[in-house]
Design a protein around this nucleic acid. Structure first.
Lengths: 143, 143
DNA sequence: TAATTATATTTGTCATACTAACTATTAATA
DNA sequence: TATTAATAGTTAGTATGACAAATATAATTA
């Protein structure tokens, strides 16, 4: 590909990413979900794979370790999650979705899906597949 | 579109956006470009439209006002940019790319384009057009 | 087994983003 | 014209993200 022509995608991607996050966050606020969209990502992943240690959870969610540490601090404060000692390894914690966390996750999940789906109302299933393919290709190319 | 199926795009978009930024930032560092990718966006825009006030520049670059204020503080410190009093309106500043800023912008631009183009080496021109269309559609749908 | 290396997590620092509140100035209107 | 509303920009607080360095513990190896 010739250079220079391809200078705007990073701007569009960043801008759209922020818009999506901002849109979801505002809806969360309207619905009185006391959580950020990044915190939701962690909660959602724990609902599928509870009791991971932080390294595994960081891998699953694509967050780096310091960021995950801080998000978990906040989720712990809200009693949605707790850090449990790991049996075999005293360095690591098992991240456990609490009863309250499970309850809230179940309560919020349908509305979150609805909010997320909004972005696609003017696009096709093929667009969805194309976007996933393109983003994954870029990710791998730069990794 | 049915809900729930469309839950991963926001994760992929966020993850890819971070990868792109991180890749470019690392290359900037390798090249000893003393600038962040977000600061570069402002510089690039000023090279096309010099002497905008901050509101216009915020609009052009998709940054909000507080963020732009802080990025400009840093660019001013590096003498790449200066805030000039506006003739007609004492509330606003004209953001001026300095001689040094113009020089650095010209110096860095070709390599930046090259770095940005890397992401597309396994994708087609059609993919590029599709991505732009999809991102713009999402942006407008959520605006 | 003592020393070295690797892993899990945290802390610190800086940059970016969003919201809200604030100052200064300008525009609108009663 | 005096009051009110709108606009330009900054400041403050909180969250996230990148990177480096620190701590504690585990695994490897000399």
């Amino acid at each position: 590909m010739t250079t220079e022509k391809f200078s705007t995608y990073s701007y569009l991607l960043d801008r759209t990413n922020r818009k999506i996050k901002q849109y979801a966050q505002n809806k969360f606020k309207e619905e009185n979900f006391d959580i950020t969209v990044d915190q939701w990502l962690i909660l959602k992943n724990l609902s599928l794979h509870n009791d991971q240690n932080q390294s595994q959870l960081a891998e699953l969610t694509g967050k780096d370790h310091p960021t995950l540490t801080r998000i978990l601090d906040l989720l712990c404060k809200k009693n949605l999650v707790e850090r449990r000692a790991s049996e075999g390894d005293r360095r690591s914690f098992i991240i456990h979705l609490t009863e309250y966390g499970i309850q809230k996750q179940n309560e919020w999940a349908p509305k979150v899906s609805e909010i997320r789906t909004k972005a696609w109302e003017n696009l096709s299933e093929k667009d969805y597949e194309d976007l996933k393919r393109i983003l994954n290709t870029i990710y791998q190319t730069l990794s």
